[in-house]
Amino acid sequence: MSGILIIAEHINGAVRDITKESIGAAVSLKGSYGGPVTVAILSSDPDALAASVNLEGVDEIVTVKMAGDHFDPHIYEEATIKIGEQMKPGLIVFGHTVNGMACAAAVAARLGAGFASDVLALKAEGGEIVATRGAYGNKVNLEVVFPKREIVVLALRGATYPMPTNPGSASVRALDLDVAAAAGSMQHTGYIEAPPSNIDISKAEYILSVGRGIQEKENIPRFEQLADKMGFTFGCSRPIVDAGWLPKAHQVGQSGKVASTCKVYIALGISGAVQHLYGMKHIDTIIAVNTDPEAPIFNVATYGVNVDLFELTKELESQFS
């Protein structure tokens, strides 16, 4: 076993935060687990991205030139295996992202490696990886171990590990890989932008979001009006969009928008699934209203309100009438 290999993720010519967070996680593990920390970039122009992963603690950057930039999990898997065979890392790190979900488990199955996804904490005990993940709607945690596995593949939860900010001094090495075996499984056809909207969660300063707890479509106007009266942008969790009650632009979270500039976030009837938290847990002031006293949203909220959201809404309505 030797070191940690991070497979970088990028989109539109930029490395994604999850990769920098993975670097953060790897670098802090390096002391107990052992280095080197290597970041692999698979891109049509990997050198352009190399600088942004050259962060403090990274030992080496491996660049692999690809034919195109459209993510293909089959090619990523093939490339990862090939890089692995050359570098023989003990730990291979992906993000638990849409792309990561499409290839981390495949790499693990192909190697017979240890595997865990949505890993929220990481440590090494006597050189062995101990990963922590959540279960049962993140009400409990579990520690998983990989006895006798000299290779472990992990997919790390986003917005969980700190990103190193200082530049590093990694060496950059170009690798020439033959991924032909995987080419042709997938034919890229295009991208469809989310429909335009006049609301922008990512720029909103105040957001009032509703989740499945509001129970039915007929209630939407009521909360929308409340948000309006309060001067808040109206947001929601994914199931509200899935059910067709609100357009996609309102969705906060991993597959919606991250509320980057938000100052106050009010969550009504949202349980606090990881993907939702991704879009809002960083916010300074979070007020969560939920009838389940153990709802995970209370773990990130500043203030928790354990009452029926309709009862509270009625009072808020009179406060802001």
């Binding site: 945690n141 579990l142 998983v144 009010i266 500043t302 309100v305 808020l316």
Partner: peptide, 30 residues
């Protein structure tokens, strides 16, 4: 892929739970 070593209830930094009647809480939020 893995072996579960233990399962436990995480010690979490819990939100400050607002006590009181809904009108009081609404007032606080407002």
């Amino acid at each position: 892929g893995y072996v579960v070593r233990r399962m436990y209830t995480p010690e979490q930094t819990k939100a400050e739970m607002l006590k009181g009647t809904p009108p009081e809480i609404a007032k606080f939020i407002a």
